[in-house]
Amino acid sequence: MNEMTKIETTLKDWETDQEVRWCPGCGDYAILKAVQRTLPQLGCDPKNTVFISGIGCSSRFPYYMETYGFHTIHGRAPAVATGAKLANPELDIWLVTGDGDGLSIGGNHMLHVLRRNVNMQIMLFNNEIYGLTKGQFSPTSREGTRSPSTPIGSVDRPANPASFALGAGARFVGRGFDVSKNLPDVLKAAHAHQGAAFIEIFQNCIVYNKDVFNDFAAPKGAGDRQLWLEHGKPMLFGDPKTGLDKGIALDREGLSLKVVEATEDNWEEAGVLVHDATSRVISNMLIEMPFGPFPMALGVIYDDPRPSYSESVAQERAKATEGKQANLAKLLGSGQTWTVEADEGHPTD
């Protein structure tokens, strides 16, 4: 995001007159509402806000946002967005992509938009399936996923989007899921971050991969399966009704994380880690925690800004053009030149 004057809007101001055409029950509806609720809270200005998407179910998103929107081609939204941002750094860009669009056909662009640190919010809706093309396994599908193209189960090892982002050099990695009440907080943190902010949003594909995230996203027992991270707060989790009773600690011998019994009163003695969102090492461990023995790490996992691409490009431009004036006539006549005189046709230098 950019420094901006806050604009008063309501959720309605961000809705278009277009009929939303996702399948009934699709997780995308919840994400759309979360975004439309968040933007007024951030004071965003619709005229400077743009949504850019690739191809896939998620990529219909711009049509439903009353902003400038560009529904591009499969996988290429990061490249289009990079050009738009360089052409007009004032634009507040939200990129909408999916696991197929962003990590398969567009994996290359995702790598580069992250390493260049182009200032934008990248929402990757991960439903672990190709929905729009009717259910083939995707690069994030778990091994053994049965689909029209893998009738006896997929053999590909899945990619971990947040891990990919961190490895590509992202300076902000967040996670949330479609119906989570905390999603707006992650979006706000991403928006506050100067640079490329990568948000993996687990999204339920009701038709082709129904409830695949229920193991951690189902409301029942969620407290034991979700670790919501907050910078400066101890990594505690558990059922809030009965009290948080577990924490994440560092196994210093094996250099890995472990789950320990701890409460809000004794977490320090129990060795529970305090979340430091600027620690790339711990962030990586949190992202890579195997679900089951560990809860799912959610929220702002990593947030350590460095100068964004448009700032660096502007600085480079200032350096390159220092003391130079545009003068087309002079430019055309530069290099080694000679003059032919009018009458004799004989050159002199």
Binding site: F70, T72, V80, G83, K85, A87, N108, H109, H112, A326
Partner: peptide, 26 residues
């Protein structure tokens, strides 16, 4: 660059044209 030129060496040919399209849009 003093002629209001921004150059972008992209990660591939596709990104090069897509970034140009994004810039035109902007």
């Amino acid at each position: 660059k003093e002629y209001d030129v921004t150059t972008f060496q992209a990660e591939d040919e596709i990104a090069a044209i897509c970034a140009a399209i994004g810039a035109s849009w902007a």
